[in-house]
């Protein structure tokens, strides 16, 4: 190429680059500014956590200046409109939902993961996986509607004496909602087990089932258990399904056929009712929210601890 063509004002390209560099001090400024702006954005996520903690704790503190802590954690009566605040009834409702959901989600999730990871051909997997993902993308209000108008009437035919709002139907649907999560995390954990281990087992004459149960699952166990912890956390925090289908009658009971109330359900009930800012009932949703937050945080941390502490090395 003829270098003179690139000349303007009698300068070559390299001379012009040099000249631009000297005149353009804004580049250096931008280089210094950008990381600071980005850091500010990254710090925002920490501020959100601080905001959550501050909000929950300060309002909870106010709540406990009006209500006894001991009553809150030991009484089994919850009726804020009559000034009794015993969160054990809400916790038992939450547990009832969580246990029911896990009875559904863990076996179905793990079995689906085993099928997809160990048995299904590529074609079948490519067909089934997106369907499971659709299930995960459905808004919870839709699940709640379905629990109330389809699952409950169906269960009523099987279980006489089932109340219209009940923990069973809501728990089952929460479980179904969580299946994709357990399935995909478990499948990830099983997928991380190297194929040479499967080959090692099958070369000894092991069937698929024996390979899966005795080699793949033990090797993937920490990831699988971590997925259970996350699933439990998700069930504890699930709101709309229980607000719609489980009822609004706090009771310290473990009968799934009855109407109950969960911690999340209570917060929804208060927030959709006429409660004035600054009343004890208003502050009570923060005390319940804090308890809920602590429960889910413990499960999340547990999940992280399990997958970090027992990370398998192959």
């Amino acid at each position: 190429m003829d270098s003179s063509k690139n000349k303007q004002d009698g300068l070559s390209v390299s001379e012009r680059i040099e000249k631009n560099k000297q005149s353009n001090s804004s580049t250096a400024f931008v280089e210094k500014l950008v990381p600071k702006l980005l850091l500010m954005c990254a710090t925002l996520s920490v501020l959100v956590t601080i905001g959550i903690l501050y909000t929950l704790l300060s309002e909870t503190f106010t709540f406990f200046s009006e209500v006894s802590v001991i009553e809150f954690f030991t009484s089994t009566h919850w009726n804020p409109w009559r000034d009794s605040y015993g969160i054990l009834s809400l916790i038992s409702g939450t547990l009832l939902i969580t246990v029911t959901a896990m009875i559904i989600a863990i076996p179905l999730g793990v079995a689906s993961a085993i099928f997809l990871s160990e048995y299904a051909s590529d074609k079948v997997r490519r067909f089934l996986k997106p369907i499971l993902e659709v299930l995960a993308g459905i808004p919870t209000v839709v699940y709640g509607f379905f629990a109330l108008t389809f699952v409950t009437p169906m269960l009523e035919k099987i279980i006489p004496g089932l109340s219209f709002f009940n923990a069973l139907s809501a728990g089952i649907v929460v479980g179904i909602m969580i299946v994709p999560m357990v399935a995909s995390l478990t499948e990830d954990a099983m997928g991380a087990v190297p194929n040479v281990l499967r080959e090692g087992a099958m070369a000894l004459g092991a069937t698929r089932l024996e390979t899966t149960i005795k080699v793949v699952i033990p090797a993937a166990l920490s990831g699988i258990i971590a997925s259970f912890a996350l699933a439990i956390s998700r069930a504890i925090g699930e709101t709309m399904i229980v607000a719609i289908a489980a009822g609004a009658t706090p009771k310290f009971s473990f009968d799934p056929t009855q109407s109950i109330q969960t911690m999340t359900g209570y917060i929804v009930q208060v927030s959709t009712g006429d409660v004035s800012y600054g009343s004890t009932i208003y502050y009570s949703i923060y005390a319940v929210g804090t308890t809920l937050f602590v429960f889910t945080l413990i499960m999340n941390l547990l999940a992280q601890y399990i997958s970090r502490r027992f990370r398998e090395e192959y």
Binding site: V196, G200, M202, A203, L204, T207, K214, V215, E313
Partner: peptide
């Protein structure tokens, strides 16, 4: 049945992530 009679050793060592003992008894146990 075939693989029970025709054993195989692979290119890269592929012991199971278990004890030496458990590795050996895996086959007999199944």
């Amino acid at each position: 049945d075939l693989r029970t009679k025709v054993g195989m050793v692979f290119q890269k060592p592929n012991p199971f992530p278990k004890s030496i003992y458990e590795n050996i008894v895996y086959g007999p146990k199944i």
